[in-house]
C-alpha cells in the first residue's frame, strides 16, 4: 500500500491532467456500460444492414475501450514515457474513429437515435480534447 502511494506521488502531473484523466475514464466506463446494456429495440429495424454494421463496429470498439481502460492506469504507474505513447495511440484512434464516422462511414452505419447514445456521440469531441491535453502534458511537462 505504501509503495502504491509512493508511486502515485512520484507522478508529477498537474491537477488539470488528473481532471482530464478522470473525465475521460468516467466517459469510457459509462460508454462501455451503456453499450453492453443497450436494449435490442433501440435499433431501427427498417435498416437491417446499417444496424448490423453499427452493432459489429460497436462490439469491436467496446473491446478496445475496455482493454484501454485496464491497461492505461497500469502503464501510467509503470512508466510515463510508455504512457505517453499509449495515450498518443489511443487519442489517434479516437480521432480516427470520429473522422471515420463523420466522413467515411456515415452512409453505411446507423446508430440508435436515443438520448443516451446521442449524448455519447456528441460528447466525443470534448473527450478528444481532454485526451489531447493529456498527450501534451505527458509530452512537454512530464518529460522535463
Amino acid at each position: 500500500m505504501m509503495d502504491m502511494n509512493a508511486m502515485i506521488k512520484g507522478i508529477r502531473l498537474s491537477k488539470l491532467y488528473w481532471l482530464s484523466f478522470v473525465v475521460t475514464y468516467t466517459y469510457c466506463a459509462v460508454t462501455v456500460y451503456l453499450l453492453l446494456t443497450l436494449p435490442a429495440d433501440y435499433y431501427d429495424p427498417s435498416n437491417p444492414q446499417q444496424v448490423l454494421a453499427a452493432v459489429k463496429l460497436t462490439n469491436v470498439r467496446v473491446i478496445i475501450i475496455s482493454i484501454g481502460l485496464v491497461i492505461y492506469p497500469l502503464v501510467l504507474l509503470l512508466s510515463l514515457r510508455i504512457a505517453k505513447y499509449v495515450i498518443l495511440g489511443l487519442t489517434a484512434w479516437a480521432i480516427a474513429m470520429l473522422i471515420d464516422d463523420h466522413l467515411v462511414l456515415y452512409e453505411i452505419i446507423e446508430y440508435p437515435k436515443r438520448a443516451s447514445v446521442a449524448a455519447i456521440l456528441e460528447l466525443r469531441p470534448f473527450i478528444i480534447i481532454t485526451m489531447v491535453w493529456m498527450c501534451f502534458e505527458l509530452t512537454f511537462r512530464a518529460g522535463n
Binding site: L57, V60, A92, W93, L105
Partner: peptide, 21 residues
C-alpha cells in the same frame, strides 16, 4: 515517432473497420 504512431493507429483502425464491415 509520434506521427508514425498516429499513422499506424489510423491504418490499423481503417484495416479493422473494413474487415469488420
Amino acid at each position: 515517432k509520434s506521427i508514425v504512431l498516429i499513422t499506424l493507429v489510423y491504418c490499423v483502425n481503417s484495416f479493422v473497420d473494413s474487415f469488420v464491415l
